[in-house]
Design a protein around this nucleic acid. Sequence first.
DNA 1: TGTGCCGGGCG
DNA 2: CGCCCGGCACA
Length: 387
Amino acid sequence: MKKVLHPFHHLLVKQRSEEEVDMDKVTAAMVLTSLSTSPLVRSPPVKVSEGLSGSWKDNGSAGPFTPSSNSSSGGYWSWSAPSDQSNPSTPSPPLSADSFKPFRVPSLGGVGPGPAGPEDPSLDEQDGSSLLFDEPIPRKRKNSMKVMFKCLWKNCGKVLSTAAGIQRHIRTIHLGRSCDSDCSDGEEDFYYTEIKLNTDSVADGLSSLSPVSPSVLSPPPPPPSPLPSLNQLPESQRPLQPSDTKEPHAGGTTPLSRSAPSALYLIHTDHAYQATAPVSIPSSSSNSAGSASTSFTPTNSSSFSISWQSPPVTFTGNTVSPSKSQGFGEQRSQTIAVLSSPPRATTALSRKVRGEGKKCRKVYGMENRDMWCTACRWKKACQRFTD
DNA sequence: TGTGCCGGGCG
DNA sequence: CGCCCGGCACA
């Protein structure tokens, strides 16, 4: 039992440094395309995006994010338009803007052989900064994110774990260019999007913060899976997460006392106490993803997929942010507000009907029963993922 | 067939 | 009470 946790420690860290390189390219591309601006610009944007997906939302609306120091030029983000221009052929319009945001993130996730590592110094920095900007609540450790890159080309849903890989894929397959990265002018960037995953508590995935995060990638894609019912989404937010910072093991102690929203809504969030967990994402296009994998996949290596809406779930631990409060869900509140009201539900007279959301058992799996909330352990109504 | 959890038993 | 499980209602 106890040992289980281990495995996850190191799962995610990316091994390659390619990312760095990628970034360069990307950024460079951005710069070119967009309007230009000084070379320096690149760095800034990056940070922002990375931050959590959540906050910066360009799609949204106004422009939230703060330019902070260098933004001199200003709108780098707005360049969605440019993207279109650049590729007349078949771009994926919808996401263009969204997708880009996250260039830098990659460094975070990954699989690493080594230690669990919450540590990449560099990483931390970035994160930290971004976090600050975006969210009021800094998360404790964020390292458990993993980043994947998804090809947005019309019928291609390829997902790769490195930016370089996806760029190459696009370049060769879709753009028909043979040269290496050198040649690229950055156009590839418009055809893929970055996806971040956290490990955290799964369920919250959705829940996480309502405020901003959604922007990330979710919008465009067609919903592959049916899962979430309207209500569900919102609801999920409220539930809490398992542990948090202070309590590493989810053990039985105070289960619900707090939980936190996890970070990204897009998929999952990050890890929990120990390290990270793997994440799986259902692929939208191909979708097959049949199994969403509920559990933890050991490494995410082989295949991943992505799904925007559905909550896939991964395992993990828990954690992270301290306050569970219900405060955050503004949006959700409206949505759900209603339902919370009376138990009108259908059948419910005597029985609850059963929550639709995933409960501890499903999320953590029988094997990690110790991570379940006490109620679940006792076969009572789940308190952690309430509906 | 698997899941959520009520109702109830045991220490 | 805390803890657990039989067994039912669902999906």
